[in-house]
Design a protein around this nucleic acid. Sequence first.
DNA 1: ATGGTCGGTCACCGA
Length: 255
Amino acid sequence: MRIATWNVNSLRSRIDRVEALLDRHDIDVLALQETKAREDQLPLMGLQAREYEVAAAGFNQWNGVALISRVGLDDIEIGFPGMPGWGEPVAPEARAIGATCGGVRVWSLYIPNGRKPDDPHYRYKLDWLSRLREAAHAWQDRPTALVGDWNICPTDDDVFDAAQFRNSTHVTPAERGAFQAFLDDGWSEVTRAHAPGFTYWDYYRQRFERDRGLKIDFVLGSPTFAERVTGAFIDREERAGQGASDHAPVVVDVA
DNA sequence: ATGGTCGGTCACCGA
């Protein structure tokens, strides 16, 4: 089974690219972030006709996430117990959608950006991660993948210029500690060993052309998921074209 | 320290 994650930066503006990506890499499950679509702007054109099911959450112009699957999309959950806004009817800040696809529990996650370390949103980010980790304890005993845009660079190698980011989010000890806490709990980041390199490049200053990016899109697997991973790659070609998202898709193969 | 470029309830805000 092939699972991919992609911060698509607006699903409507890139629906053709999404469909092409599914075909090009023969993807079974695609997790999307920053869908930027309202509920009435779904369903997504030709996907159903191609035997993919779609589930989405976070219907606003920033935070939306979605799952597209042709191997089942069962027991869909919007958010998780403890998530800010969980249980509210609309949950516009959902940022997380989970479903069982082909026997694997897949969570599409869009971790809060944090904006600036002195911004209240930074606290919100750390709190959100803490609550996710608590909820994730209950998911570790079965094949589970926490995929998406983590908005954290776990090491200095994951930033094109660590010095430039010294006073920025994504690299602070607290954020790295929050990421490490998942690993300490037994989650494994399964893409890095197969797919080094950045996954995100800012649109401006020709950051992609100069490969000045960040590695912030990750797949964290439970033990029974991680042991089944046979490979992974970053689709840099998708980022290279005109009209690309600022993130590249990350693809993982599972036996 | 600023600004650069995207997308969208579009001329501001969030990334």
